[in-house]
């Protein structure tokens, strides 16, 4: 007995989710960030972010199809983290790494925030 492990399965699944997002297929929530709108899949947001987990695990919010984030959240930082959720790649431009770190802290994505912090320290 044993199994055949398809080593690239996780990546293939995530790539398909990103294709669905880019075509707005089966997206079930719109996130409003300081005037910008992002379509996404709740399941991916909840799987990647402690903040969204706490929002959508609340039965009152489970059926929400749109939520607005605190105005202090930077749309560029959110965009970078949303792309990360769907690609596993974190876009790190020097000019945006602090915004990305602060947004990761807000979204309760501690491992990403720690990585940004280490990146910032390594640059100074």
């Amino acid at each position: 007995d044993g199994c055949i492990q398809f080593t690239r399965h996780a990546g293939d699944v995530l790539l398909n989710f990103n294709r669905l997002r880019s075509r707005n297929i089966l997206t079930d929530v719109t996130i409003q960030v300081d005037g910008q709108q992002f379509h996404a899949h709740k399941a991916i947001l909840v799987a990647c972010s402690g903040f969204f987990y706490s929002v959508f695990m609340d039965p009152e919010n489970a059926n929400l199809s749109a939520i607005s984030l605190d105005p202090k959240v930077d749309p560029k930082g959110f965009s970078i983290l949303l792309d990360f959720m769907y690609t596993s790649c974190l876009d790190l431009k020097d000019s945006l790494v602090l915004v990305t770190m602060n947004t990761a802290i807000y979204l309760q994505m501690e491992h990403v925030a720690d990585t940004c912090h280490r990146f910032i320290k390594s640059r100074h």
Binding site: R8, R19, R23
Partner: peptide, 21 residues
Amino acid sequence: YEGVNTIKEMGRSIHEIPRQD
């Protein structure tokens, strides 16, 4: 599944959703 007679398949595992139809 690590270890117990695991055969690793490196190829694609599922269909690829196209960028557009």
